[in-house]
């Protein structure tokens, strides 16, 4: 399993190298529900670099998905600042965020969210379908499905695939636009250990070979161990992980 061999990935001192892919400072996210304000993230800082491999762990309701949505530009923080490379994402318009999502970020969801009317191959092509480069897109999609070991399932509908196969299709889909960051919310949550291992291996391969940063939310200790860093979220704040050896909890613990 992954070996922590990146230089400068020690305790709290790696923040000095290069521009982070995405970083946040004093990020607060609040939800308004029925006159009540829920603080899902309470002034947290984070930083994700190229080829990073980060696991976000924490109890239910601690703000993991909220954080992932912010990283994925699906949502904006209530206060604080998130920068994609050097760009403050708050200054991006809706359509600019859309474009960044398409070009920079790939999503893998716990429940796959494949489009049932499209075949495996078409699902992988989907984020790029509107580009009208059918041949290039198809070649790339075929290649990606081969890579996740599904070259014999190209024309299968999602409901003809097993859970692990669906998740692999979803991963292939997240990679169709050659993203720099893959965000996965419990990518192995519905899978048995063997299949989960395959998925994790795949992520590790991508990270090592293509420099793709992978951030995944998980409840599974075992899955978290596979990541280079573990970020522990508790009640909207970052904590030093129990298994304190490798992960630095996003550079700095608040409080």
């Amino acid at each position: 399993m992954p070996v922590d061999d990146r230089p400068g990935d020690g305790d709290g001192n790696e923040a000095t190298t290069g521009t982070p892919l995405i970083s946040g400072t004093n990020v607060v996210k609040e939800y308004q529900t029925g006159g009540q304000t829920i603080r899902a993230l309470k002034r947290i800082d984070f930083r994700i670099d190229e080829a990073d491999s980060v696991a976000i762990v924490g109890p239910s309701g601690s703000g993991k998905s909220t954080l992932l949505n912010l990283l994925g530009l699906l949502d904006v923080p209530t206060s604080g600042e998130i920068r994609l490379r050097k760009q403050d994402v708050a200054t991006l318009s809706d359509s600019e965020r859309n474009r960044e999502r398409k070009q920079t970020i790939g999503f893998v969801f716990q429940s796959y969210y494949l489009i049932p009317t499209l075949t495996a191959l078409e699902n992988v092509e989907m984020p790029r379908m509107l580009d009208r480069t059918p041949k290039k897109t198809r070649d790339r999609a075929t290649e990606l499905l081969e890579r996740v070991g599904l070259s014999d399932r190209l024309d299968h509908a999602p409901d003809e695939l097993s859970g692990g196969q669906k998740q692999r299709v979803a991963i292939a889909r997240s990679l169709i636009n050659d993203p720099e960051l893959v965000l996965a919310d419990e990518p192995t949550g519905n899978l048995d250990r063997d299949t989960g291992d395959q998925i994790l291996d795949l992520f590790e391969e991508l990270r090592a070979e293509e420099g793709v940063a992978v951030v995944m939310v998980t409840h599974d200790e075992y899955v978290a161990e596979a990541a280079d860093r573990v970020v522990n979220l508790v009640d909207g704040t970052l904590r030093a992980p129990d298994t304190a050896t490798r992960a630095d909890g996003g550079h700095r613990d608040r409080e």
Binding site: N98, R101, K102, F107, Y113, P116, P127, L130, R173
Partner: peptide, 16 residues
């Protein structure tokens, strides 16, 4: 709903 959400998340604009 979710399907459309996925389209949006993967870069489809409102107009699309």
């Amino acid at each position: 709903r979710e399907e459309i959400g996925v389209l949006r998340a993967t870069g489809y604009g409102k107009a699309d």
